[in-house]
């Protein structure tokens, strides 16, 4: 076809219009599945980090403000209307490559039940080990993707086996021990990835602090009056 001005504008216009129409159609088609996929990922994470429940934590989600004007999301898990745990979607910006998002579950007495890293950009093979590092061995064995290793079998090596000094499960954040060993805490950092480990614990601590704050507010709300003052004071 000849390259007259009219032809060129017309051809480009048609191509653009057709493309936009197709894209709009595909967008409408995939909109719901994308939302569903994100929700499914979230529910799977919640499922993993709190004890068995029979309510729908997603419907009872509430947000807690944390320092810096940001907010974390809390998902209460209940068994027959009794609180069995709370999953907190928490985060940190102190990772080796910035942002890390973690879903962490606390049982009502404040200890960690389990966690799931939702999003991170840490170095593969180093910081990325946090996906499983901070769990005790038997939990890892249940949840790890890979269980089989020819090498282990050949040499009779059992994976891990260095005790629970690196686990955060069943520990309570907010005390002195809840730091990496280098900072005087009791938790072993990932080998060669102290910054990632520190950031991870920072995220967990942020979630814990938020939960403590919200439960305090909740208690105060029961005894009326005080809560309004407290909230007004923030």
């Amino acid at each position: 076809m000849e390259s007259t001005f009219k032809n060129m504008v017309l051809a480009l216009l048609i191509v653009t219009l057709v493309s936009s129409a197709i894209l709009g159609f595909v967008y409408e088609l995939t909109k719901q599945p994308i939302v569903d996929a994100q929700l499914k990922k979230k529910l799977e994470a919640i499922n993993k980090v709190v004890p068995p429940y029979n309510n729908n934590p997603n419907d009872e989600m509430y947000t807690i403000e944390v320092e810096g004007g940001e907010a974390v999301e809390a998902y209460p898990a209940k068994m027959d209307n009794k609180l069995v745990g709370t999953a907190i979607k928490t985060y940190t910006n102190k990772g080796f490559s910035g942002f890390i998002q973690v879903m962490v579950g606390f049982v009502p007495n404040g200890t960690v039940y389990n966690y799931q890293v939702l999003d991170h950009k840490e170095t593969p093979g180093l910081g990325s080990k946090m996906n499983d590092w901070f769990r005790p061995q038997e939990v890892v064995a249940e949840t790890a993707d890979v269980k089989f290793s020819i090498f282990d079998w050949l040499f009779g090596i059992k994976p891990g086996g260095d005790g629970d000094t690196k686990s955060i499960v069943n520990k309570t954040p907010g005390n002195k021990g809840f730091l990496v060993a280098k900072d005087g805490g009791e938790i072993d950092a990932i080998t060669a990835a102290t910054i990632s480990s520190r950031a991870f614990l920072d995220a967990i601590n942020r979630g814990y602090t938020a939960l403590q704050k919200s439960s305090q507010v909740a208690i105060k709300q029961d005894s009326t009056l005080v809560s309004t003052q407290l909230q007004g004071g923030e």
Binding site: M8, L12, V15, S19
Partner: peptide
């Protein structure tokens, strides 16, 4: 159907 001079932009859109 595509004029020669706007070939590349049209291809990029597709």
């Amino acid at each position: 159907g595509i004029p020669d001079k706007v070939r590349i932009p049209a291809f990029i859109i597709i």
